[in-house]
């Protein structure tokens, strides 16, 4: 589904990603871990098409197409979804209207008919349950005055509505208490299928207790320095990142 080869990217002339290689297949869950400033969020941003990042070299192939050729809305319509680390507040735009526009533009792109108001509301009600989101939040302005947990749940709710093929969760666990974390993880797990893939970007292992990864990659200083199965995450939780840093120093 996703194939990243030797990706180098920078912002304002500072190189953040220094040669990333990653293969993600349908049905897989990949966790990307690493200390602060290692480039995790940059990778998520580059995949979603944030324009302030410059890709200097390397390739990103998504479903057989060059991802870098696609603008953010095209990527979304082709099934890429970024759950934001800091979801943006947009006063004056209700979540309902925003999602209706987004969903219908995606459906149009897929050659499907627009959803009528009734089917849209039915779908919304169904997906809201998934993340235990309250109706009153949805009719309010997008994320405005939401708590941290509400914002993150709203991200997963949007993901449920848009049914992406490749979901990238950028630090979705940050700022969540344990109950909210379970709800969010549960939502993500229910959306998992053999046709879609998930990339979980996280600082802590905690989220991975609930979303079980098939692969764990450790990002340091703009490069993957270690990959493994879920046991790698447990080791990181126990020992921190220092042992990897030491290993690196030896190389």
């Amino acid at each position: 589904m996703l194939s990243i080869k030797n990706l180098r990217a920078s912002i304002d002339g500072n190189e953040i990603l220094k040669g990333i290689n990653l293969e993600v297949k349908a049905g897989e869950v990949h966790a990307i871990m690493g200390p602060n400033g290692s480039g995790k969020s940059t990778l998520a941003s580059v995949l979603a098409g944030r324009e302030e990042y410059d890709v200097n070299s390397g390739t990103i192939e998504y479903l057989g197409r060059d991802l870098m050729e696609m603008n953010p809305e095209e990527r979304a319509r082709e099934g890429v979804f970024l759950a934001f680390q800091y979801p943006v507040e947009i006063p004056g735009v209700s979540t309902t209207n925003f999602l209706k526009t987004a969903l219908n533009q995606i459906r149009e792109h897929r050659g499907e008919e627009r959803l009528d108001a009734v089917s849209f509301l039915t779908l919304m009600k169904e997906k809201m349950k998934l993340v235990e989101l309250d109706q009153t939040l949805i009719s309010r302005s997008l994320n405005e005055g939401f708590s941290g947990g509400e914002k993150k749940r709203n991200e997963i709710f949007q993901m449920a509505m848009l049914e992406p093929k490749l979901a990238i969760l950028d630090e979705t666990d940050s700022g969540l208490d344990i109950d909210a974390l379970k709800i969010v993880a549960n939502g993500v797990n229910k959306l998992k299928s053999s046709d879609n893939a998930t990339i979980v970007v996280t600082h802590y292992q905690r989220l991975l207790d609930y979303i079980i990864p098939d692969f764990v990659h450790v990002l340091m200083n703009g490069k993957f320095v270690k990959s493994g199965g879920k046991e790698l995450a447990y080791k990181l939780e126990e020992l921190g990142y220092d042992w990897i840093k030491e290993e690196q120093a030896l190389v």
């Binding site: 979603a48 809305e73 979304a76 970024l82 934001f84 925003f98 526009t101 987004a102």
Partner: peptide, 23 residues
Amino acid sequence: EQLFYLRSRGIDKDRAIGILLQA
């Protein structure tokens, strides 16, 4: 940031600008 958020959900740029200005 707001513009990117809307676009990252599949809304084209012109429409996203329209939504923000309408808001």
